[in-house]
Design a protein around this nucleic acid. Structure first.
Lengths: 390, 390
DNA sequence: CTGTTAGCGCCTTCAA
DNA sequence: TTGAAGGCGCTAACAG
């Protein structure tokens, strides 16, 4: 069934508009009056000439209207306690009336602080990262600082590019969600003129501060759990670039090798975002490469869920015929049928505390290198709940 | 199983650091040399005094080193074609060598354009919005413009606050994902000095341009579909504030009333983000309020999935005993067991085209009011696939 | 408590 | 093609 509106096509050309095209506003009508008044004032002559076809109300405009100096308006806005209450009220009235909006660029330039925290994360399309960001947001929301997000889609080049953009904005601090892999990125981070906190992964080489869990150990624990449950031909399902999953891959491999069970045919990877549908595809690939596989350790719960669905479709019983272990303990892992055994990572907490660490470093003016392991938890649920056959 | 790191507690106080605390960097060692050289130059005396304990490399620093004026360096960087190739190379070498990083605040102030596009979205924790943002990102990525995100958690106050923050940054344009409800927000938007595109919903009053689907009609279509399949006691499951879901509620209600089937006990709402686990809770509430309910129209697929799980757990057969229709056609809807009937919304496309519209308006310098309906599609799958009993 | 002065780093404008 | 002068809007530092 198609909605009557049909299926419009993109308008033809996609002009790649550079910065700064066609942005000039048109003149504000009531500006002349204020300018006239300005001329009657002393010491504000410079105001006269500028703004021909501009519209923005400036501090000085408000100051003129309120018959004070611009710095007083500034103070009334930012340090109310430093201005007489009546004066302040009068000024604030004018501010509201004239619709004054502060200009952050000017403020940043003059005060030499942007009041901005940059958050670099690999992907928005994953609840695992989003929880971390919620934690960050909640902590930063308690301050006057602003957050600026950038997501890099797991691509090293994009990481570097986004980081450059951040640095151009003089961030007060930086949070890098997930591990830092590219050496170039590490280089830039090391030279960054602000504190940096790495959140989520502490296994990769940290710059400055880090808070999260040791994904390698978590991965070892999960793999070991599958072995203890009697599974032998345990596959690894991974979405996203290998480099991002590296610590977890290493943990899986170490345990499998130790047990004499490692087989490259069991490692099924996919470049690209993890998703539920990916889980099904990986099951398909797995059974072609290794028809005797009897379990899968999925590096994200959504892949695990997709694997469950595909098993149901093929008549493979979970956990009896095939065990599944996920990662992250996403919302649905505890309510799906069957419920998903997974590695619980306190993501919100990590975000909150990462922001907290950062804010302390910003306030203290010093970056003390430190690594905090918040710990994980293996949550055993139905997808691996078969009697041990060991 | 607990990871040995244990469960550390948040460090005691959470100082609410205001903007600008403790940010001064320490002196750069090689600065003296450059300053000395500077003194030998003419016309740059002003450079001497400033920067006592500062570190940032400025255009002028590079200019000094390259023996040109700062404006030439600026040009070499931003309009390479306006500078002799050799000179340009020499300058760029110095730039790289000295690690010059442009200062966006200064650029924005001087050029009167921020080069930034603001994207206001209700929630990051929902794949529906994230797809839209991916579309936006891909289109904007073709330009030099930057994106700044803000999410408002569905709260009107937060929307206004975030919007103010945007306006303080002189955005080149604004994209508002999802409908605009609060009149205050509408007010501010109406006065914004830049083009605005509203994406995803075109049913609510548009300011400027809008692109998306008519959620009310989509909702009507879905409800009608359930009726056609023979369901009668059709519930509505909604996450998020009622105001956000309003067009869809209205569509559902209109069709149900028309059919003489409407019953308030069938409407189950929850303030808060939708999620898979929410679906289960809503099923629970529904069967308490209306034990004879035989279907649910869920305003998001994740709620629908949660409803499926809960039905499985209770031995309720879907679609035979209970029909389920979702919304958004998220990734998993086509692979779950059973697959989910849902309303497909071309979210990525909407994002991409919203950005495209915005960029055109920015380039053209004019905002032509326009509303584009991209249309939706009802995708019939297993959760409603029972023989019609009508 | 309020005002004056002098930039912040870059870019626009105009001149050479 | 390059440079000099000046200003963007705001705030730090110091006066009064």
């Amino acid at each position: 069934m198609r909605h009557p509106a049909g299926c419009p096509v993109l308008e033809t050309t996609l002009s790649l508009c550079p910065i700064g095209d066609g942005l000039r506003g048109e003149g504000a009508p009531d500006r002349k009056d204020r300018l006239a008044r300005a001329c009657r004032q002393v010491g504000h002559l410079s105001t006269r000439r500028r703004r021909q076809r501009q519209e923005r109300v400036t501090l000085e405009d408000v100051a003129l209207a309120a018959n004070v100096s611009s710095i007083t308006v500034s103070r009334a806005l930012r340090n109310p306690e430093k201005v007489t209450p009546e004066l302040r009220d009068r000024i604030l009235r004018h501010v509201a009336e004239m619709g004054y909006v502060p200009d952050f660029a000017a403020r940043a330039l003059a005060s030499r602080t942007s009041g901005m925290i940059g958050v670099l994360s690999p992907s928005l399309a994953n609840y695992a990262f989003i929880s971390v960001m919620r934690g960050i947001e909640d902590r930063v929301g308690m301050t006057d600082l602003r957050i600026q997000y950038a997501n890099t889609g797991f691509e090293p080049d994009e990481q570097v590019k986004q980081l450059r953009l951040f640095l151009s904005q003089n961030p007060v601090g930086l949070i890098v969600v997930s591990g830092v892999e590219s050496p170039q990125l590490l280089d830039i981070l090391a030279q960054a003129p602000c504190p940096i906190v790495q959140a989520l992964d502490i296994a990769s080489a940290p710059i400055g501060m880090a808070i999260g869990i040791d994904n390698r150990i978590a991965s070892e624990t999960a793999t070991r759990h599958l072995i203890e449950r009697g599974y032998r031909r345990i596959a690894l399902f991974s979405g996203g670039p290998a480099i991002h999953a590296y610590p977890r891959l290493a943990g899986y491999r170490a345990v499998m090798e130790e047990a004499g069970l490692f087989d490259p045919a069991l490692v099924v990877q996919h470049q690209g975002h993890s998703s539920v549908s990916l889980g099904g595809h990986l099951i398909d690939r797995l059974f072609r490469q290794a028809p005797d596989a009897d379990a899968a350790f999925c590096l994200c719960d959504d892949v695990a869920l997709g694997a469950i669905f595909e098993c149901q479709r093929r008549g493979i019983r979970v956990p009896e015929d095939f065990g599944i272990c996920g990662y992250h303990d996403l919302d649905f892992a505890s309510v799906s049928v069957p419920t998903i055994t997974t590695v619980r990572v306190p993501r919100y907490d990590i975000g909150f505390r990462a922001a907290d660490k950062l804010l302390r470093a910003v306030a203290g003016g010093k970056t003390v290198s430190s690594v905090v392991d918040v710990g994980f938890q293996l949550v055993e649920r139905e997808t691996t709940a078969r009697r041990s056959e060991r």
